[in-house]
Design a protein around this nucleic acid. Structure first.
Lengths: 242, 242
DNA sequence: CGTGACGTTGAGAACACTCAAAAAAAGTGG
DNA sequence: CCACTTTTTTTGAGTGTTCTCAACGTCACG
């Protein structure tokens, strides 16, 4: 089964179109890449630190996170991933993985041989640019996370993470930024923000008490987005979405 | 004055050779790029957040840092840069800067028009790969910084920063990793590690008291590198230097 | 209806922060 | 080269945000 046979609007095609001036023909070339599509369960490792990668994993549905471990065993999530995301473009040019990628929900992924992608990037400047641009946007998000974890207090930090997730979901066509479902546990939010799950819990309730968000289970509503932006110190410029 | 006229072994040429299979001819093409070389003082801004960038800045001598500001005014340094580093390759494909770049010492920089670089990357796959690879390594370092700031305690965090800086200096040919000069103030170390300068001072003295490092002003000696690696939780794999 | 994962709450401890001030070093100008 | 200023480093005392440990509640699922 190939990428072009994925049901519904292909999230990868959508993402490519967002990334730049990629022609319809180029998108077709990408979707024609040889791929093995698989359904994987929650918690499944897609990339392992220290392992060489010869295939590129595309997330077609579900959510994933990228994480690293400290010597103490503490885990730091360095990014979350949505349908359409290319999960290891790094390995197009870096031979060994420096982090793990793991699903946080059930997911459907496509495995594409690196060699096939390299061939395509050599042929099409537009595709090469789009993929490079994608890795640059990832890097921009990492920079923002360094700031988030390094210089914001717990409440702001969590609010920022929520804003970013909401904005990215909306821009990926997964629904509205003002009402969405969180796929991650509070412990995963903790690992992403450099806090403990206990403190994440307290701060989520504090955000709720402040009226910044409304919660029902994992469902989040942001009634006043301008207010939330200000509480979260969130300026979406770093997402380079436009 | 062009890049090829820089005195001594050109740090950019050295870096390109480290980045991949770039032929002597390709290196010459890079050095032949039109460039305006300038000496700039300490604290000079090379890139400003929010500004579009049409030129790429190459650091030829001296040191620089990349930083972002939180709404509270707190500053987070997200990376340090050494001679040979390309300071805004991001802007090859992202039109607006999402962070600042500022010198932390006197420096000499070369300004190269983006258009000229784009032309070169379109012509040579090897150069394009080398530059893309450089941005991917930057991203890997950002990921490590998220972990460093998010999940390591203050002493480990500072030790890690020192190890990284030492390793990068050595690999850039600026001297030995076991004895080097720090170009940054303790306040800048604080901004890079998400701490206060007061606490950085205490932790540096603690590292000294532990025998992990020896200091004289900004000069650092690491007698037992294996010990320091272990204290710092430092594994250089993420630098993808090999 | 049991079991395990996830979320919630409380009490006490700790790591890092704030404020403040002095000492040392590095620039600056006469 | 010395007096002066500014920046950087160092030290102390008290505070607070976040952590740790521990327990209990709740929900999903078999």
């Amino acid at each position: 089964m190939g990428l072009e046979e994925v049901e519904g609007m292909n999230p990868l095609a959508r993402k490519l179109q967002r990334l730049g001036r990629v022609s319809e023909e180029d998108v077709q070339h990408v979707l024609a890449l040889p791929a093995i599509v698989k359904a994987v369960p929650t918690g499944h490792y897609l990339v392992r630190e220290g392992r060489p990668a010869t295939e590129c994993c595309v997330l077609l549905s579900g959510f994933a996170c990228r994480h690293k471990l400290a010597a103490t065993g503490a885990r730091q999530i360095v990014s979350f991933h949505l349908p359409g995301d290319l999960l290891d473009l790094q390995h197009l040019l870096l031979s060994v993985a420096d982090h793990n990628v793991q699903t946080i929900t059930e997911a459907v992924v496509a495995w594409v041989p690196m060699a096939a992608i390299r061939k395509l990037t050599a042929q099409s400047q537009a595709i090469s640019d789009a993929l490079w641009r994608d890795t640059l946007i990832d890097a921009s998000i990492f920079r923002e996370w360094v700031l988030n974890v390094g210089r914001r207090d717990a409440k702001t930090r969590i609010a920022h993470m929520l804003c970013e997730f909401a904005a990215r979901c909306e821009s990926a066509g997964l629904g509205s930024a003002s009402a969405f479902e969180l796929p991650m546990t509070q412990e995963q939010i903790a690992d992403a923000t450099g806090l403990t799950s206990v403190h994440v819990n307290r701060m989520l309730r504090a955000l709720e008490a402040d009226g910044a968000i409304a919660r029902d289970r994992r469902h989040i509503r942001i009634a006043d987005w301008q207010n939330m932006r200000s509480i979260a110190d969130f300026d979406p410029a770093y997402l380079h979405a436009a």
